[in-house]
Design a binder for these strands. Structure first.
Lengths: 221, 221
DNA sequence: AAACATTTGTCCGTATGTATA
DNA sequence: ATATACATACGGACAAATGTT
């Protein structure tokens, strides 16, 4: 595995960035509960920082939709609305599908091999019922495709949507089915055949089925 | 025209927000040139504010892709790469298309009337060769659809993409063709027929043609 | 190579405005 | 309704880091 070439950005981790990462992680995994009030003074003390980088991090989290700021009043973690999957997945499907389409002509042999290898690990994680790893590997799989699509707008938008998916997962609103692995194989096949329309279509199917599955689960509750 | 119900958010315009709006406007219309170095001290003086709200605004602009921050070194306005339309329009088309699909079953009679009225003004602006107004009205048209789709993720993502489109327009990389108005009518018709697939398809066509038009223009340069 | 000038990142104090008693 | 407590938004100062001479 090649070491990610950090040539561009992270020269040194600034206090704001480390605060952002830590707080986002805490919000996603539920350490900071939905609706919890966030007092910059307290957070600053908890992270051994001053209030400024905390405030800056909170503002970035607000843009991402993890935090809600009421100027002059309060700052809270946003609610986790389980039905939010219904808002989240359609654009996720549309953008992933587009990414697959755009990536198709750009794949190298290494990319394709990497996709197969990743899906192998995905199958294994599913078999072992290791839901957390399955989600992480599924994200790796899609990340390869998004990287190949090489479109910064799609990239950042999907990153944001994925973060919300991850949060819903931690709040037990999402599980991945076994059918995903077969669909992944179909997607890889479309890539190898250099068929962008079919790749896009299969990718859409992959996510739409996920939506349907989750809707069914929701009806049982 | 109904007054926007600001019920939710803007109780009072905070200094950070006014700085953000002003700076974004300056970047979009070219007052702040691409690659221009932004010194927070100078901006603070220009806007009669302290550095803090300026810095906060700049960080939000970085997330939006209008500013690039090199920690410890400098912060600059991002370049305007005219070829960036090729990155920008595909996801814009995909999301607008999705918005049209999702909005179809939700339209009220007033919405549909508003769409027709807006397209009427669009036609007029095109006839008068008022490119700037045409762009603004085109945005209004699509905004009605996005609002009806009622999906916060799609909403914010499209807002961001539109802002970049606007910036490219100001840098003379985009013009709207006359064919758009006819396609708008087709889209409205699909809405009235409650046909989400056709609405999505027509919306996609509308944007893909825009992409093709721009590609042609690019080849002439 | 070393000291300087600039600009950024961070800290903390203060005042305005909000909620609670 | 008034007063009290408190959190936020903003300001200004200091320090670390970078590029320059």
């Amino acid at each position: 595995m090649p070491i990610p070439t950090n040539h561009a950005k992270p020269v040194r981790l600034t206090a704001k960035e480390s605060a952002f990462q830590q707080l986002q992680q805490w919000i996603i995994d539920g350490t900071l509960q939905p609706e919890e009030k966030l007092v910059d003074t307290d957070l600053a003390q908890a992270l051994n920082l001053s209030r400024t980088p905390i405030r800056e991090a909170l503002q970035l989290l607000e843009v991402q939709g993890f935090v809600e700021m009421f100027p002059g009043k309060a700052t809270r973690v946003t609610k986790v609305v389980k039905d939010d999957v219904e808002n989240l997945l359609p654009p996720l499907a549309a953008l992933q599908s587009l990414a697959a389409q755009l990536a198709t002509p750009k794949f190298t042999a290494e990319d394709l091999a990497s996709l197969s290898e990743t899906n192998g690990r995905f199958i294994q994680a599913i078999e072992e019922k290791d839901d957390f790893n399955a989600l992480k590997i599924d994200e790796e799989f899609h990340q390869i495709i998004v990287d190949a699509a090489d479109n910064p707008y799609i990239h950042t938008m999907l990153d944001r949507l994925q973060a919300h998916v991850r949060r819903l997962f931690f709040h037990n609103a999402i599980i991945l089915g076994e059918r995903s692995s077969e669909e992944h194989e179909e997607i890889i096949k479309a890539f190898k055949q250099k068929n962008p329309e079919r790749a896009a279509e299969m990718m859409r199917t992959n996510w739409v089925r996920t939506i349907d599955d989750l809707t069914l689960i929701g009806q049982n509750n």
